[in-house]
Design a protein around this nucleic acid. Structure first.
Lengths: 193, 193
DNA sequence: TATGCTTGCCAACAAGCGTTGACCAACAGA
DNA sequence: TCTGTTGGTCAACGCTTGTTGGCAAGCATA
């Protein structure tokens, strides 16, 4: 989607490009947008800061390239409707612990306008369609998806960003056992009125 | 706790001091730690940046003074145990919408080490004791308090910081109706395993 | 061998940051 | 009236930031 065509079989610079992106993700995840300096990212990638500018234009462009997220959500048609809560929580935990990109996105989203906009986009493009498939009344899908994401992001916040000790200490299966019924209820249970 | 005693009846500078704190809270809530500059805060308070330094030492001191939070949590002995979820959610919503302190704290906590430490302190000093009073088994109190705070902070994140449109659109009573059973379950229901 | 694109480093710029210290006006107590 | 304290401004410091442009090697093609 980003570049149209690579006519040359494999750019020699591709290694540098991904080294920059890896370093950027790490720094954004650890420090947030402002304190993740281009100089520090370049040093991590063992190149000159000016290379970052040449390849990604400016700091915003670098951020956009570094946190291109695909949640790879499972297809709700592939398992019983009563299991959607458990499936979602399990999947989210795996995604968060697989790499740092989601932590980077959350850290930046909390202080940076572009970061928040990116998270709203992911919510609307990826989680909301799933909610529409699963909700009893599709008209309630946005509210139900927002409730589910409040619980999922809240857990990520306390566990991976703020690092509340008891939230860090919880075993994965325990998180699933506690959160799955909540997410299930938000998505499929009748409105509590 | 911060100052021991005001011997003079009323410092003439008190107005300036609180003007600085108000401006600081607003900027920290809107921009986060790094982009809330002392110069901008001073301009909002209509004084010189050097006054901020004289009164609060440095930027960290200003932040510490600006986000001294008392959640004023209700006493769980004052209502039926089955109502603790509803009471907590209602109270939290009111606190978040009362002023910008909590938004400032959350925004800064997501990127700043000192901010995260402050949030862990509030969790341990204010929410955890309440959980200990309410939980069936006090040994489970930390985990249960962490789960409850994940839901409460997650809602604040999506509603007041990331501003997911459906999360913003939810009426207060609807938030309470959805979240109260969740928090109630996290604090008082038997372990789901 | 000559040409031209690619990959990289280096030095510098302008702007903004937190922070400091000198200075000044107002006021209170002797 | 003199004097010391308080509340405040001003100008500058050293530093870091994102960003730019010039220059040197490497490599492919002609």
């Amino acid at each position: 989607m980003t570049q149209s065509k690579p006519p040359t079989p494999a750019r020699r610079s591709e290694a540098t490009r991904t080294a920059i992106l890896d370093a950027a993700r790490e720094r954004f995840a650890a420090d947030g947008y402002e304190r993740a300096t281009i100089r520090a990212i370049a040093k991590d990638a063992n190149i000159d800061p000016s290379m970052v500018m040449r390849y990604y234009g400016n700091k915003e462009g670098l951020f956009a390239a570094a946190v291109a997220v695909d949640l790879k959500l499972p297809d709700p048609a592939s398992f019983p409707r009563a299991e959607v809560g458990r499936a979602l929580v399990t999947h989210f935990l795996a995604m968060w612990e697989e790499n740092e990109v989601l932590t980077a996105l959350l850290r930046v989203g909390a202080t940076n306008q572009a970061g928040a906009e990116r998270m709203r986009g992911i919510f609307g493009d990826q989680l909301l369609p799933l909610a529409r498939q699963v909700c009893p009344d599709p008209e309630q899908a946005p509210a139900r998806a927002a409730l589910a994401s409040s619980q999922l992001l809240g857990l990520a916040l306390t566990r991976y960003v703020l690092r509340f000790p008891p939230a860090v200490a919880l075993a994965r299966e325990e998180v699933v056992a506690w959160l799955a019924p909540t997410v299930q209820r938000y998505l499929t249970a009748p409105h509590p009125a």
